[in-house]
Amino acid sequence: MENESITAALRGPLATDPEYERFFSRRGGAIDLYKEPLYASVERFHAPYDPTSASEEDPLLYYGAVDGDLPNVSSAATESLRDAVIRFQQPHRNFLWERLSDLINKIASYDASSIAWEQLKDPVTLDEYHGLPLGLLEEIAHAAVAVQQILDALHSFLGRKPSTAFTLDPNYSFLYMLEACRSRSELRFYFSSLQLRLVRANKHILSYLQSIRTLYTGEEPSEYLSSVDSTISEVREVFGKEPPTKELYRLMARKDY
């Protein structure tokens, strides 16, 4: 395996560099979340794998890695997969989850109709908005960003085409609306939509990881990729190209959504 310092240099700046801007620009700017690549989030929010530690088990060991490598897989692809596994399976340094699935299940359990939405006012225009309570916004934002980072890494590893791959929330349109939205009813719809799609995404990730384990260990998967396909290809190809409200109503109208 390549020297870690060389790998880090090839990857780009560390997560502590000031290059990465905060994910939210309004009141959500108080949330410790950034527009950064997967490896930077692993460095920031998790304990990256140290191959020099004799007591540390390789996160990819379960998926068939031998001495840190997967057969016929490049070092870069292996590192990306390892980061995805760490992000999904290891505890968050800000205590948001022990495993990402735990937070997704917690978010899915919330009743959107009983949430006390915050009423906001733009200090310049004095326009009124509604938004998620900051603590809940932190949870769903961290979950959504981590899920999409993991999905992107797994899609790349498995060679899935972006046009046919599951996307949680294109351009994070729904998520940004949860920070500040004019309509309270639309806010509930955006939140409910992300609840459903996070659960779907979790199933996709589990299925992808099981398929990777099968590929490199020979064990049969418990689920196949087709069993958790969330949207038919014709719909998926245009998803993310319409305004958030139109996207939401189109998705909610689908029987398989």
Rank of each mutant, 00 (worst) to 15 (best):
E79H: 12
H130C: 07
R99E: 07
L137Q: 04
P51Q: 01
F88D: 09
A65V: 11
L81Y: 06
L96S: 06
I86N: 02
G135E: 13
A108G: 08
L136C: 07
D83I: 07
I86E: 03
E98T: 15
W97A: 11
I104F: 03
W117G: 01
I140F: 10
S114G: 00
D69M: 14
S109K: 13
R44G: 02
S75Y: 07
L137R: 04
S53I: 00
G135A: 10
H130K: 03
H142S: 14
N105A: 14
A76D: 10
T78N: 03
G68Q: 07
S113L: 00
A143C: 15
G131L: 04
Y63E: 04
E98K: 14
P71Y: 10
V73L: 04
S109E: 09
S53E: 12
K106T: 04
N72R: 12
N94G: 07
Q90N: 13
E128I: 11
P133M: 06
P59Q: 08
Y63Q: 09
E138D: 15
G135H: 12
E139T: 05
L70T: 03
P48F: 11
K121E: 15
P51C: 04
V73E: 00
S101A: 14
P59H: 08
W117R: 02
V124W: 04
E138G: 04
L70V: 05
E56H: 10
V145L: 15
Q89A: 11
S113G: 03
H92E: 08
F95W: 08
Y49W: 10
P71E: 11
H130Q: 08
S55E: 15
D50V: 01
L134G: 06
E118W: 03
Q119T: 15
H46Y: 06
E138T: 15
L100A: 05
D127A: 11
S74Q: 09
E98R: 14
D67E: 13
T52M: 02
S53A: 15
R93L: 04
S101V: 10
H130V: 08
D122H: 11
V73W: 02
P91I: 09
L103E: 00
L60N: 03
I140R: 08
P48T: 10
Y62F: 13
L103Y: 02
L136F: 05
P123K: 09
H130F: 15
P133D: 05
V145C: 13
L70D: 01
A54K: 10
A143W: 09
R99Q: 15
L132K: 05
Q89H: 13
H46M: 02
S53L: 08
R99S: 06
E79P: 01
Y62D: 12
Y110C: 13
